[in-house]
Lab assay of single mutants.
Amino acid sequence: RKWEEIAERLREEFNINPEEAREAVEKAGGNEEEARRIVKKRL
């Protein structure tokens, strides 16, 4: 699934746990840019 690939990239890029990465992607509706913004806000 594409969402899992996005979550994996976010996890590696921001050094967050898989659960946090998945939550961000879900919140963003699968949009990678939006997920990235969500993760950055949390850091």
Rank of each mutant, 00 (worst) to 15 (best):
residue 36 R to V: 07
residue 3 W to H: 07
residue 17 N to P: 15
residue 34 E to G: 09
residue 2 K to Q: 08
residue 12 E to I: 10
residue 7 A to S: 09
residue 34 E to S: 08
residue 1 R to G: 07
residue 1 R to S: 10
residue 39 V to I: 11
residue 8 E to T: 13
residue 22 R to S: 02
residue 7 A to H: 01
residue 27 K to E: 11
residue 41 K to S: 10
residue 24 A to K: 00
residue 10 L to V: 08
residue 13 E to H: 02
residue 31 N to A: 14
residue 43 L to Q: 02
residue 43 L to G: 15
residue 15 N to T: 13
residue 5 E to G: 07
residue 20 E to C: 08
residue 15 N to Q: 15
residue 27 K to C: 07
residue 5 E to H: 13
residue 4 E to Q: 11
residue 11 R to A: 06
residue 19 E to R: 12
residue 20 E to P: 09
residue 22 R to T: 09
residue 41 K to Q: 11
residue 3 W to I: 15
residue 4 E to F: 13
residue 14 F to L: 12
residue 11 R to N: 04
residue 25 V to E: 01
residue 6 I to A: 12
residue 29 G to D: 04
residue 37 R to F: 04
residue 7 A to W: 05
residue 36 R to T: 11
residue 11 R to M: 15
residue 39 V to T: 08
residue 29 G to N: 04
residue 12 E to K: 02
residue 17 N to A: 15
residue 13 E to F: 04
residue 18 P to G: 15
residue 30 G to F: 02
residue 12 E to L: 11
residue 22 R to M: 11
residue 6 I to M: 13
residue 35 A to Q: 00
residue 37 R to Q: 05
residue 25 V to D: 00
residue 17 N to Q: 14
residue 30 G to V: 02
residue 10 L to R: 00
residue 30 G to Q: 06
residue 24 A to C: 06
residue 17 N to W: 01
residue 41 K to L: 08
residue 32 E to C: 07
residue 21 A to K: 00
residue 40 K to C: 06
residue 35 A to M: 01
residue 40 K to T: 12
residue 29 G to T: 10
residue 1 R to L: 15
residue 22 R to L: 09
residue 21 A to S: 10
residue 8 E to Y: 03
residue 4 E to V: 04
residue 15 N to P: 10
residue 1 R to K: 15
residue 16 I to R: 01
residue 39 V to W: 05
residue 3 W to A: 15
residue 26 E to A: 10
residue 7 A to K: 07
residue 35 A to R: 00
residue 15 N to M: 11
residue 24 A to D: 06
residue 25 V to I: 02
residue 18 P to S: 14
residue 1 R to F: 14
residue 8 E to L: 11
residue 35 A to E: 00
residue 4 E to N: 14
residue 4 E to Y: 03
residue 35 A to C: 04
residue 37 R to D: 08
residue 33 E to N: 01
residue 4 E to A: 06
residue 32 E to A: 10
residue 33 E to Y: 03
residue 29 G to W: 03
residue 17 N to T: 05
residue 31 N to F: 04
residue 38 I to M: 13
residue 34 E to C: 05
residue 2 K to E: 10
residue 29 G to M: 05
residue 5 E to L: 13
residue 18 P to H: 07
residue 43 L to V: 06
residue 4 E to M: 14
residue 41 K to H: 03
residue 3 W to D: 04
residue 40 K to W: 03
residue 15 N to S: 13
residue 18 P to R: 13
residue 7 A to C: 04
residue 5 E to Y: 08
residue 11 R to G: 14
residue 18 P to L: 04
residue 14 F to H: 08
residue 39 V to P: 00
residue 18 P to Y: 08
residue 40 K to R: 13
residue 36 R to S: 06
residue 9 R to I: 15
residue 7 A to R: 05
residue 10 L to E: 00
residue 16 I to V: 14
residue 37 R to V: 13
residue 42 R to C: 08
residue 32 E to F: 05
residue 3 W to F: 15
residue 41 K to E: 12
residue 3 W to M: 15
residue 30 G to I: 02
residue 3 W to C: 00
residue 30 G to N: 03
residue 6 I to F: 04
residue 15 N to D: 07
residue 17 N to I: 15
residue 33 E to P: 11
residue 9 R to V: 12
residue 6 I to R: 05
residue 11 R to L: 10
residue 13 E to S: 13
residue 8 E to A: 11
residue 27 K to R: 09
residue 29 G to H: 14
residue 24 A to G: 04
residue 28 A to H: 01
residue 2 K to L: 08
residue 32 E to W: 06
residue 13 E to M: 08
residue 12 E to S: 11
residue 37 R to T: 15
residue 17 N to G: 12
residue 19 E to S: 14
residue 29 G to K: 09
residue 42 R to S: 08
residue 27 K to Q: 14
residue 9 R to G: 12
residue 6 I to S: 14
residue 33 E to K: 02
residue 22 R to N: 08
residue 12 E to V: 07
residue 27 K to V: 11
residue 28 A to W: 00
residue 8 E to S: 06
residue 4 E to G: 02
residue 15 N to H: 08
residue 43 L to K: 03
residue 21 A to E: 00
residue 30 G to M: 10
residue 38 I to R: 11
residue 3 W to Y: 03
residue 10 L to S: 00
residue 26 E to P: 00
residue 9 R to K: 15
residue 16 I to Y: 01
residue 18 P to W: 06
residue 16 I to A: 08
residue 18 P to T: 03
residue 39 V to Y: 02
residue 5 E to S: 11
residue 41 K to C: 12
residue 14 F to K: 01
residue 28 A to K: 01
residue 31 N to M: 08
residue 19 E to A: 14
residue 6 I to E: 08
residue 35 A to H: 00
residue 9 R to L: 13
residue 42 R to W: 08
residue 34 E to Q: 06
